[in-house]
């Protein structure tokens, strides 16, 4: 029988390595690396963005001297002060947390608002807003 070089070409190419089988080690390494990086990125990037956006923010925590709950109107009024990013009260309404941009405001800006509403407010603490995000998230 005459030799037919084409008959087993695919086998021959496989032996000689002309035809690559499956995924090469290099490709596999790249795929695994990309998957690991994407997973890592999905965990780290949102936190990094949040930190970046909130790095100038600070929280000031107030309480009324008599320990009574804060009136609801003060929340919206404080929200209009330049540099204030958010105002919230705690569950029983006795603590008021003002989130503000420390480059644009400071607690002395809030005193006139309390005085205007005849409220005796005590500043309990100020702390970086990011501490709150990393811990009890809101």
């Amino acid at each position: 029988m005459t030799y037919d070089a084409e008959k087993y070409r695919s086998k021959r190419e496989k032996v000689l390595g002309v035809r690559r089988r499956g995924v090469s080690f290099g490709t596999l390494t790249v795929i695994v690396s990309v998957v690991i990086l994407m997973g890592f990125g999905a965990l780290v990037i949102p936190k990094s963005v949040a930190w970046w956006n909130g790095r100038h923010l600070e929280d000031a925590i107030y309480r009324l001297r008599g320990g009574e709950p804060w009136p609801g109107s003060i929340v919206s009024e404080l929200g209009l002060v330049p540099g204030v990013r958010g105002v919230i009260t705690d569950k029983d309404g006795t603590r008021l947390v003002i989130t503000f941009d420390r480059t644009a405001a400071d607690p002395s800006r809030f005193s006139p608002v309390f005085e205007k509403n005849r409220l005796n407010a005590d500043l309990l603490n100020t702390k970086a807003h990011m501490n709150d995000m990393n811990g009890q998230e809101g």
């Binding site: 070089a5 087993y8 086998k11 021959r12 496989k14 032996v15 000689l16 390595g17």
Partner: peptide, 21 residues
């Protein structure tokens, strides 16, 4: 075999040769 010099193949190629042919 099929124009392949089987004793000129690397050991990996030879293993492939055996499994293919």
């Amino acid at each position: 075999v099929d124009t392949l010099d089987i004793y000129g193949l690397s050991s990996e190629q030879k293993a492939d040769f055996r499994s293919e042919y």
